[in-house]
């Protein structure tokens, strides 16, 4: 079983949902990233989504755009992000790490080279925002050959027919984007999300995580009541932007609060 499958089956046995925080690798500095990943685990992260910065993050709001600019200013590249995960793995062999970003850095490295390096570093999945199923099949085959789970997005606009197409390609979990918008938007409607997940579950057997618009313990608990995983991005990156002093501890504390709220979700 893969690390991602392990995580979800353990949680399922415990009746809990996965907490998946996102940070951009290299933000605020490349040297800080591995420490922040450990801090997230300490706060209760079940899976880490590690952002690969890109010059043109057209699906991200201002907070994650700025994180990418900071990371790029420090020379963060896909190869360096892979090396960060390898370093993280020296002391954590359990927590799945999914890289999240845009297609071009992976295209530039080449899927074969990327997948081999990612596997060697202990990376578990890849989510490329701008690689829909239409363009994905050959690339996904390469990823799977190296044991890297291709994580796909589903959206409020996704019809059932597409959910089936995604189900054929996806592995690990799928990521439901809770709203029409960019990361960091704040108009989450949990009733809508619940209805859509019921529909999607008719076609998708994998666990479904929900992200976009989850900002605090309250919204995390509401989403955890209907989803298999809760993804928190901009709110955490905002914390990074607020300054380096005590950052690891602030992240741990923030996540612990979220974790506690989630664990009461279906009590």
């Amino acid at each position: 079983m893969s690390r991602i499958q392990n995580a979800f089956s353990r949680l399922k046995a415990e009746g809990r949902q996965a907490l998946i925080p996102y940070i951009t690798a290299g933000d605020p500095t490349p040297a800080a990233t591995v420490g922040l990943m450990h801090a997230l685990v300490q706060g209760g992260a079940d899976i880490i989504e590690l952002g690969v910065p890109f010059t043109d993050p057209s699906a991200d709001g201002p907070v994650i755009q700025r994180a990418a600019e900071r990371a790029l200013a420090h020379g963060t590249s896909l190869r360096k992000v892979i090396a960060m995960v390898a370093e993280f793995r020296q002391t954590n062999v359990e927590t799945p790490v999914v890289l999240m970003g845009y297609a071009n850095p992976v295209e530039a490295m080449g899927y074969e080279a990327f997948a081999a390096a990612a596997q060697a570093a202990g990376i578990d999945g890849l989510l490329t925002v701008d690689l829909p199923p239409e363009e994905a099949s050959e690339r996904v085959a390469v990823l799977k050959r190296f044991g890297i789970a291709p994580i796909f997005l589903l959206a409020p606009t996704t019809p059932a027919s597409r959910a089936q197409a995604v189900a054929k390609l996806a592995d690990g979990y799928v990521y439901y984007v809770s709203l029409k918008g960019v990361t960091g938007a704040a108009n989450l409607d949990v009733a809508n999300v619940a209805a859509k997940l019921t529909e999607l579950r008719q076609h998708i057997q994998l666990p479904i995580g929900v992200g976009f618009g989850i900002r605090d313990a309250e919204s995390a608990r509401a989403v955890a009541a209907v989803a298999d995983a809760v993804v928190i991005g901009s709110r955490i990156v905002q914390e990074v932007e607020n300054g380096e002093t005590g950052l690891a501890e602030r992240l741990t504390n923030f996540l612990s609060g979220v974790r506690a709220a989630m664990d009461t979700a279906r009590a």
Binding site: V129, L131, E134, E135, A155, R162
Partner: peptide, 12 residues
């Protein structure tokens, strides 16, 4: 060419 966009835009 192709259609390399986020899922939300595909139906549009």
């Amino acid at each position: 060419g192709g259609i390399y966009v986020a899922e939300t835009l595909i139906p549009a």
